[in-house]
Amino acid sequence: MIEEIEQYFRDFTQELAQVATRDELHRVKGKYAGRKSKFPVFLSRLKILPLEERRVVGQKLNEIKLLIEQLLKEKEAALLKEEKKEVLDISLPGKREPLGAFHPLRIVMDEIIAIFRSLGFRVEEGPEIETDFFNFEALNIPRDHPARDAQDSFYLEENLLLRTHTSPAQIRVMRKLAPPFRVIVPGKCYRRDAFDATHSPMFHQVEGLVVAPGISMGDLKGTIEIFVRRLFGEERKVRFRPSYFPFTEPSAEVDISCSICQGQGCRACGEKGWLEIMGAGLVHPQVFRNAGYDPEKVQGFAFGMGVERITMLKFGIPDIRWFFENDVAFLSSFKALR
C-alpha cells in the first residue's frame, strides 16, 4: 500500500507541474485534496491492516497528505503573485533627452589637437584677416612670385587679405615665444577657389611648428609618423616625397597609404595607392631671418594639413560641400564616438 500511496503522490506532482492557471489548480486540488481524493479510500483501507503495518502506513499517509496540501498552497501563492505582477514592456522607447552631435570637422580638429598636445605641443591662434607681409612676404613668397598662383587670395584692401594658409601664424608664434617650442595653430583659411567636390573658398588647416637647436628631417618624419598612426590607425604607412614650398627647405609632401589597398593602387584611391595629407619641411633660413631668428643657432620643422581632406579620408566623405551644408542627416551620423 505504501507503494500505492507513493505512486499517488508522484501522479500529483506531475499534474501540479502542468498547472498554469488558478482554474487548473482548483481541479487538481479537488482531485488530490478534496473529498473526491483518494485519501478517504486509503483511510478506510488502513483500518483493515495489521496494527504494526497500520502505524507505518498511517504515518506515511499523513505525511503525504500534508505535503500535498503544502505544495498546493505554495502553487496557489505563486500563481497569485504572477497575476499581480505588472507586465514590463521593455521594448517601449526610453525617457531621454535628445542628443545633438559635434560637427565632423570639429571632431577631427579636436582629435588632431589632442594628439599633438599629448606629444607636448602648445596650441596657439592667429587672425583670419592677415597682412600681405605675414601671409606671403615673411614666408619667403615675394610679390610676383609664381608660388602665389596656387594661393589665389581674397583681398580686403591693398595689403590686407584673408589668410590663405595657417602658415602666417609661424611668424606670429616665433615673435611671441622664445625657442625651443612646439606649437600647433588650428584655424580657418580662405582661397579664391570655386566650390566643387574637393574645393571650397573656406577650409581649415592645422599648422605645426617646432623650433629648437638641431631639428632635422628625421624629427619631422618621426613626429608625423606618430601622428598619422594615432589618427588613422597603426596599419597606415607614411610616405615622404620631395616637394616645394617657399617657406620650407627641404620640403616634403606627406602621403598615407590608401586604407583599402595599402599602397598597391585601387579604384578608391584612383590607382595611386597613396593619398596626400599635408605639406611639411624644415623651416627655411630666410623665414627665420624674417622672424628675427638666427638660422645658424636654431632649426625647425613646420607642417600644414588640411582638416577637410583628412576628415574626408577618415570618414569616407565624398564631397567637401557636405561640411558646410550642415544637413542634419549628415551631422547626425557623428553622434557616436568615431
Binding site: 612646439r182 628625421g218 618624419k221 618621426g222 616625397r241 620631395p242 627647405e249 627641404p250 620640403s251
Partner: peptide
C-alpha cells in the same frame, strides 16, 4: 640648405631615419 635638399631628393626621402625631437620640458 638647398644643397641638402638636392642630395636628399635624389638619395631618397625614404632613407630619412625617423626620430622624435629631444626637448627640454615645456609646461605647455
Amino acid at each position: 640648405i638647398d644643397i641638402v635638399e638636392e642630395i636628399g631628393r635624389v638619395h631618397g626621402y625614404r632613407n630619412i631615419v625617423s626620430s622624435f625631437p629631444s626637448f627640454p620640458f615645456d609646461p605647455g
